[in-house]
Design a protein around this nucleic acid. Structure first.
Lengths: 202, 202, 202, 202
DNA sequence: AATGAATGAGCTTTCATTCAT
DNA sequence: CATGAATGAAAGCTCATTCAT
């Protein structure tokens, strides 16, 4: 089946991109990983860039899908518990997507075309922030979140913390970021975000 | 002067990396930008990787320096004001460093050697988080920050938000991230971080 | 019908050769133009060269046929009129055949095999010259052409002029060869050929 | 010397074009013939097309130069003698240039760029015709050529005959064009052109 | 009879690197 | 100290051709 071949190639490309890096993801390497000849790549994709865009489109884990139905969870469980779940999922997602997403910055043309595609499909990493903000706004209406809190800012803080942690983990290696394990990290940031920094009497 | 030549080359390399991307930062392009011949690059650097590492080491803006003396500012001004300053500086810093830092993920070997160098020099992006955490801990002793707050988590939230925003800006373009300008973004996240999300009576 | 398919392919190949040139007349392009798959080409032809030879054999306009019965026209009309007709036909013929005939010089092997086929079939561009020479010889016997004229040389002059003009037209474009239109060109060369250059008393 | 290298490459390219044909004139073959690596070609030429254009510009024998001073010969020697010399030179020139000039028709883009260059330099094969026509016009003033003869047409006849003969020779091989050797061919066409075909009393 | 998935050889071009000057 | 001519290796890509269906 033709779709199988295509899929195998995309999968191989993703694997090579993850292991050798975008710069070493050559057509030869990808073909070998896919078990096909180089020529076959060009029967299924217009060129290397087209293939990479397909990988980016089809293989980047889709966080948005996970968070899309988040607003509907407002009112259920505890806010803290829900945010911890979100943060956990975010951590896992960013952990997977950071290396590939970051790679793309080395090829501005690829970046531009990827951005274009993302926006056309109304996707993008910022959509996750919007979903979390929407959730918080819903909780605000249920008075489970401070009336004067800023949902967008809160979402930025929460997801930003996860995002940066994923980046640091990949950049520095796990061993460097000592102290907090993943769970305690999530607990700590949610707790801190919930109660704020200001002393009770300000 | 030999040091001048070296510096010119590093500067040219940085410029090319920023404009054309790491993948298109070829020796030919860099030599042309520097106004020297390709051969000259090899009198001053062992090879391309060595040159890139020098760029990374010498040209990545050094946020750490800016935040190093932050703990000493505890007790001065307001916590909110200090955090806003930090966030503003972070935003500017990340904005400059994200494209180059991200690029490096496309070349695992380069990434590994860069990490090695960073750790050896006891630098790294996480140092900024540590400095902010140290500052908050100091403010805690002065009782300008809740006694039970988690300084590391707070630092992660604040800087993470800035980090992700810089990333989104570069990935999506400024026009997409509508709504909040830079200043209001800083104000909003600091305000939200200060007061937390929990309703007053929890 | 199998012959239809074959013909369609030959036609498509000719079209591609004329529009894209021999070098860009790839099997892919030809198959697309014919509306068949590449594989189909190989059911009807042994290979690309075989296909090209078929095009050359079957699609190169056959001037010889036009001139074959020329000698029989001796004695009819005027010599001048007959030569003008021949020149006009030659011009049209060369105009169509020059680009393809010239192309073949880029592939010596193809040229060799084409020549071989042409000679085997007792065809070839020089046959036209022979026919015109035969016609002139016939007119000589009728004393409508100087007794001491050289029919072969005259044929070479007449057809050569047309040949070169076709070549120049294709090489330089119509706009460059200003001055004489087609009709006047034919009239002029025939007139000049008839009366010669020598002053009346030499 | 750099110019030596360039020249050697152009020479090698010409040799390969002549022996293997334009289609088989690959960069690898040319580099090998020149005694350099393929990479070196690209230090001296922008690409293959650029190299071919250089060959066409610099290595196509320049007939125009030979005929440029032809008009000045008017009045000297005999018209017949002068035309025989021109025809001989034309035959030699066309013999050398036909294969390469014809080749170019297989690559329309190359043809277009070559034409452009030729016209820009005010060159081109038709210039030879113009020179011969100018010569004949001068002889007309000296009354060594019929007053009512058409110089352009006469030039077209003379050079066209040579042109076509060169083409036929290359296309069919020398053995096929039997009968007239080169000298007698030249003599015959000049003689025929001089005296014309019309019987004395028409 | 026609397909179309697949290929391997070969293409043009770019790259980082070397070295005599 | 800097050059620039030169290179070998490898890149992305195209080609004519095969073959099971």
């Amino acid at each position: 089946l033709i779709v199988e071949t295509r899929e195998r190639i995309v999968g191989a490309a993703e694997r090579v991109m993850r292991t050798k890096g975008l710069a070493r993801a050559t057509t030869k390497e990808i073909a070998r990983a896919a078990g096909y000849s180089e020529g076959t790549l060009y029967k299924h994709f217009e060129g290397k860039e087209d293939l990479f865009l397909s990988v980016l489109r089809e293989r980047l884990p889709n966080f948005v899908v996970l968070v899309r139905d988040l607003p509907e969870r407002s009112g259920r469980g505890t806010v803290r518990g829900n945010l911890e779940e979100v943060a956990s999922a975010a951590l896992a997602f960013y952990d997977e997507s950071v290396p590939m997403a970051a790679s793309v910055f080395s090829e501005p043309k690829l970046l531009a075309r990827h951005r274009e595609g993302v926006l056309k499909r109304d996707r993008g990493p910022h959509k996750a922030n919007e979903a979390v903000a929407a959730y918080l706004r819903a909780e605000q209406h249920l008075e489970r979140v401070r009336r004067d809190a800023n949902p967008e800012a809160a979402a930025a803080l929460l997801l930003g913390a996860c995002y940066q942690r994923a980046f640091h983990l990949h950049f520095l290696g796990e061993e460097v970021l000592a102290g907090s394990g993943e769970e305690s990290f999530v607990e700590d940031i949610v707790q801190t975000l919930m109660q704020g920094l200001s002393p009770k009497k300000e």
